[in-house]
């Protein structure tokens, strides 16, 4: 066999083996697909890495999947605060990220909140992000991040660490984790509330929200 033919055959063989090897590896190590559960339940139970505040032994749990760029979420903030203020000794309140795809700055806002969380200021940063929504949602990435940096400075955070964390893989996967759990729960809007692990229709008033929580507490 002439050299060219030999070369072609050998290279083809190596390619075939390589493709089978890599393909097999990818298939073997791929995360199993998770079908969205459209029955309205929380797909991923609360754990230690979740942002949870309130009673350590809650009579009811409340989880909010939210997006810092979402106007509805910002609008819900006062209601959520008022309800939490009243029930904080009896319920736990958990925030999970669900940045909607059409909100271009939502992911980086979530990363900023996570970076602040690493320095113990998650809820404070979240409040600043919602309150200052109009200041950053329309900006490009760099400008929005500059606004987040001013929030971080106001919170007295270590800026070097904040900026490093904002862009870190760990923070990104942390947000991704929440997003995927939301997708697996078939969430299609924000905010979405889960009380005792069951999705509820967004309460239209503070009174309605409180009634839902009262019901959950008395019907565990």
């Amino acid at each position: 066999m002439d050299t060219q033919k030999r070369l072609i055959i050998w290279i083809s063989a190596i390619l075939v083996v390589g493709i089978i090897g890599i393909g097999t590896y990818e298939v073997a190590t791929a995360k199993p697909a998770q079908l969205p559960v459209a029955n309205g339940s929380l797909s991923m139970p609360l754990d230690a890495t979740d942002h949870t505040k309130g009673a350590s032994k809650p009579e009811a749990t409340v989880v909010e999947y939210s997006d810092f760029e979402c106007p509805a979420c910002a609008a819900y903030q006062p209601m959520v605060e008022a309800v939490y203020a009243q029930y904080k000794d009896r319920i736990s309140f958990t925030y999970r990220h669900f940045p909607l795809p059409q909100h271009l700055n939502a992911p980086i806002a979530a990363y900023a909140a996570e970076a602040a969380s690493n320095q113990g200021k998650f809820w404070e940063m979240g409040d600043m992000l919602f309150n200052g929504q109009n200041d950053w949602v329309q900006l490009d990435t760099a400008s929005a991040q500059a606004v987040f940096a001013t929030y971080a400075q106001k919170l007295g955070l270590d800026m070097t660490k904040f900026k490093a964390d904002e862009n870190s893989d760990a923070v990104k996967s942390r947000v991704e984790r929440d997003l995927q759990s939301g997708t697996a729960s078939a969430i299609d809007h924000t905010p979405t509330f889960f009380i005792n692990g069951k999705m509820v229709n967004n309460p239209q008033s503070e009174a309605e929200f409180k009634a839902l929580i009262d019901y959950a507490i008395t019907h565990p």
Binding site: V17, I20, T24, Y25, V27, T29
Partner: peptide
């Protein structure tokens, strides 16, 4: 040999990743 290779590579990948 290719079938055996694919099969073993699959098991080896699972072993490495712990999946």
């Amino acid at each position: 040999a290719l079938v055996g290779f694919g099969d073993s590579a699959f098991l080896l990948s699972k072993h490495i990743s712990g999946a």
